[in-house]
């Protein structure tokens, strides 16, 4: 209540009763300002799309979009240059699939354990740890991958180099665990307790109530968490750049060096000559990445909306 008094007294002293004119203007001006800020967000999305597209356009005079996506070779500065990003798409696919295969089960296990089985002390221990895991910058993950995980992978699989898609995917798996865990835990927690009661009252064991009612009821939210994790893994740059191995050849397996679209952008956009075909090709790659993540986040958002509605309805 103290706050209120302070605020109220400030309000009295600041606003003597003046004429209506300037006050009226202030109201309109402020409303216009905030509206402008809101619309700026829409403008930002449109601008990102517009700039990616306009910078990428010169490429499509040289390489058609379809050839760009399915082309198996990327030789941007040779003569004549070849712009095919299939190796990077396949590289991303390998790395993201492995990251999800490893990270999603772990994240879900953490979510279910935290939502359903953990006591308050375990939860208060796990919370900050997961926050930290989510907060570690990706370049630090890259260092961990480079100095810790890669040597292990090389030794375990007796590979010539530990810098492979497998290594990158493994590190990414750790990065997405907190995303899956926190969002799925929230989804499970937001299922009304009545569902559990109803199931128990019908003779379900607590275990059955959890797995046949609660978790299925949270499935939209859980699926959204997986999609968001996938988006994050797909857009992740530094880790895959540092530990992916960076080979330009179409990868035929997981345990070989490979490169993703993001890593290519990070390496090459620093030196591509402005307004060259190479520069345009990099923006085209950005556009492809933008489009993929756009649809992933859109789908995740749909699922979250559905989860909200499903629970809110009675």
């Amino acid at each position: 209540m103290d706050k209120w008094h302070k605020a109220a007294s400030r309000f009295r002293t600041r606003r003597p009763l003046r004429g209506a004119g300037p006050a009226w203007l202030l109201e309109i001006g402020f409303a216009a300002l905030v509206r402008l800020a809101g619309y700026l967000l829409i403008a930002a999305v449109l601008l990102i799309f517009y700039f990616l597209f306009s910078q990428a356009r010169p490429l499509f005079g040289h390489t058609a979009l379809w050839d760009f996506i399915t082309g198996p070779r990327w030789l941007p500065v040779s003569e004549p240059p070849l712009f095919g990003i299939l190796p990077f798409i396949v590289g991303s696919a390998w790395i993201v699939s492995w990251a999800l295969a490893l990270g999603v089960p772990l994240g879900l296990a953490v979510a279910v354990y935290l939502a359903e089985m953990a006591g308050p002390r375990v939860r208060s221990l796990a919370g900050p740890l997961l926050t930290t895991l989510a907060g570690i910058p990706s370049v630090v993950y890259g260092v961990i991958g480079l100095l810790v995980v890669a040597p292990w992978v090389a030794r375990l699989l007796s590979l010539p180099t530990g810098l492979t898609g497998l290594t990158a995917g493994t590190v990414l798996a750790l990065m997405i665990v907190p995303t899956v865990a926190t969002l799925s835990e929230e989804a499970i927690r937001s299922v009304p307790e009545e569902y559990r009661e109803a199931a128990l009252a019908m003779g379900a064991t607590p275990f059955q109530a959890r797995w046949t009612v609660l978790i299925p009821a949270a499935s939209s939210g859980i699926a959204a968490s997986v999609l968001l994790a996938m988006g994050r893994a797909l857009g992740e740059t530094m880790t895959v750049l540092m530990v992916g191995g960076g080979r330009l050849v179409l990868p035929t397996g997981l345990a070989v060096p490979m490169r993703t679209m993001t890593a290519t952008l990070a390496v090459e956009s620093a030196y591509a000559v402005h307004r060259s075909l190479h520069y345009a090709a990099l923006f085209a790659m950005g556009l492809v990445l933008f489009a993929i993540t756009f649809f992933i986040t859109l789908a995740a958002d749909r699922l979250l909306q559905r989860a909200k509605r499903g629970v809110g309805q009675t």
């Binding site: 990102i48 990616l52 952008l265 956009s269 950005g286 933008f290 993540t293 992933i296 986040t297 859109l298």
Partner: peptide, 15 residues
């Protein structure tokens, strides 16, 4: 907002 949050950071770099 949803889409801005999902854009990869390297794409922001290009932008």
């Amino acid at each position: 907002i949803v889409n801005l949050a999902g854009v990869p950071s390297i794409v922001y770099g290009l932008f």
